[in-house]
Design a protein around this nucleic acid. Structure first.
Length: 465
RNA sequence: GGCCCCGUCGUCUAGUGGACUAGGACGCAGCCCUCUCAAGGCUGAGAUCGCGGGUUCGAAUCCCGCCGGGGCUACCA
């Protein structure tokens, strides 16, 4: 029996705090939030921290931080509370224990005293005989005596497990092929395959939206829910995986783009990342590419979610991010730029913004355009003609009002008088000011520097050496 | 090995039997604009629709086989 279609939608994400906040977590969170907002439902954040070895509280904080940065907020969670708390699995151990005891009493689970070595041997043997491995049920049929350390295994009843996936339709799995799996580890902690379905059932989760790596875990979890007599979630949705650029699964070690903190540090706008993530795995069916969060809530649907994994592409992200940056107004762009150029005062940033806007695929790129403001470049080696042009620029600049338009006018008069082209005229100036081949337009490059500093750099470049 | 998911330009994708000389976007190339770099405008290259068989008057679209990629197969989640 399924939870009624009319019951309020409840969805959840269940990240594990075992490392930095992951891109996949953001992606899954996004689709959950979209669906919840669309249906007026509740979005739950549950922390799946049953891996005692790898969990760290600071990683949990990182998850909150990253999701908040992205503007994704939850309705219930460890930090917010809610009627179905606690929301940390490590604080729900009694609950899992009760359920395990119930399954044991009902004869739907049994204790297993096999050692890891014995199990490993079973697996190896199956492999050698080219047989699909399935636990032998030794401890159910003929348990060894005199052992104290045990796990609890679920006795798979066999048959067939079917469920509805909102993306892939009716899914069908043969439970005869599934071995009896461990639901309680020897340290007393539940396994993911047990804690997750128990919580989903008890928290009355109606739609389980998660990554495709969980597709084949679903029948295991459904078997648990059925055995416990709980209603099943109405539906599942298994989102296509985000692949690395080389087509492999993203790994934390090999692929820095898995780390959410990176996007913030590099100056990707959260709304741009959200937009990109939405498009990676879903398609609106129109040519629209830029979506606000509210638009996404309106048009998102699981019917248009891709079935195949999508490769992560920095170029496309950069483009989308650039679109968002260009759409920002002056004061907002200046505000967001602040933390990326702490060397500069407010007014300098504000004056740079109009020239910066079309040049930034990400906010951190502003540093390359502006670092000459706090770093003195090497004086260039100018040929006599270039030095002469710089001298005439100095003369023209002495009485010009120190603003981009006035500077541009003064310079253009000097260019005309010199008979040279703008290129020949401006290049040595740019070089003297920044030491680079690329900069903001020359009048901005000058105006952002205090006049005396700018003139000093130009003067120095004309000096005989 | 077993089970499951998937396979259209380099990448993300549109496409659900005829309107497909396979469309769009990113990227790439050229031109225009231009002091450099961007942005913007225009133009262009780029996909025998993984392969092989069917079905059909007609297939990227339906069926079968194969190949390739991914996931699960843990006392990780």
């Amino acid at each position: 029996m399924a939870v009624s279609e009319r019951s309020p939608v409840r969805v959840r994400i269940a990240p594990s705090p075992t490392g930095f906040a992951h891109l996949g977590t953001a992606s899954t969170a996004l689709y959950n939030v979209l669906f919840a907002r669309q249906r007026g439902g509740t979005f739950v954040l549950r922390v799946d921290d049953t891996d005692v070895e790898r969990n760290r509280p600071e990683y949990e904080a990182l998850i909150y931080e990253s999701l908040h940065w992205l503007g994704l907020d939850w309705d219930e969670g460890p930090d917010k509370g809610g009627a179905d708390g606690p929301y940390r699995q490590s604080e729900r151990l009694d609950l899992y224990k009760q359920h395990a005891v119930r399954l044991l009493a009902d004869g739907k689970a049994y204790k297993c005293w096999c050692t890891r070595e014995e199990l490993e041997a079973e697996r190896k043997q199956a492999l050698a005989e080219k047989r699909a491995y399935k636990y032998s049920r030794r401890c159910l049929l003929n348990p060894p005596a005199g052992r104290s350390e045990f796990t609890v295994r679920f006795q798979v009843p066999g048959g067939e497990v079917t469920f509805n996936d909102m993306i892939r339709g009716e899914m069908r799995f043969d439970a005869e092929l599934m071995g009896d799996f461990i639901i309680v580890k020897s340290d007393g902690y539940p396994t993911y395959q047990f804690a997750s379905p128990v919580d989903d059932a008890v928290m009355m989760i109606t739609h389980v939206i998660r990554g495709e790596e969980h597709l084949s875990n679903t029948p295991f979890q459904l078997l648990i829910i059925d055995a416990l007599g709980y209603p099943r979630p109405v539906a599942f949705a298994h989102m296509p995986l985000i692949l690395a650029h080389d087509g492999a699964k993203m790994s934390k070690r090999k692929h820095p783009e898995t780390n959410l903190a990176l996007y913030r540090e590099q100056g990707y706008l959260p709304e741009a990342l959200i937009n990109y993530l939405a498009l990676l795995g879903w398609n609106p069916g129109t040519s629209q590419e830029i979506f606000s969060f509210d638009e996404l809530v309106r048009v998102f649907s699981f019917e248009r979610v891709q079935h195949a994994g999508a490769r992560f592409d920095w170029e496309k992200l950069n483009w989308i991010n650039g679109e968002y940056i260009r759409a920002l107004d002056d004061s907002e762009l200046a505000r967001r730029l602040r933390q990326f150029v702490p060397e500069l005062d407010e007014s300098t940033i504000c004056r740079a913004v109009p020239a910066l806007r079309t040049r930034l695929p990400k906010l951190a790129a502003a540093r390359e355009y502006l670092d000459y403001l706090w770093t003195e470049p090497q004086p260039p080696d100018l040929n006599p003609e270039a030095a002469e042009r710089v001298r005439s620029a100095i003369a023209a600049l002495r009485e010009a009002p120190w603003e981009p338009p006035a500077i541009e006018e003064a310079l253009e008069r000097a260019v005309e008088a010199s008979g040279a082209g703008k290129g020949k005229f401006y290049t040595p100036i740019r070089d003297a000011l920044t030491g680079k081949k690329v900069s903001l337009p020359i009048h901005y490059t000058l105006a952002l520097l205090p006049r005396d500093v700018a003139l000093a750099r130009l003067l120095r470049a004309t000096a005989e050496r």
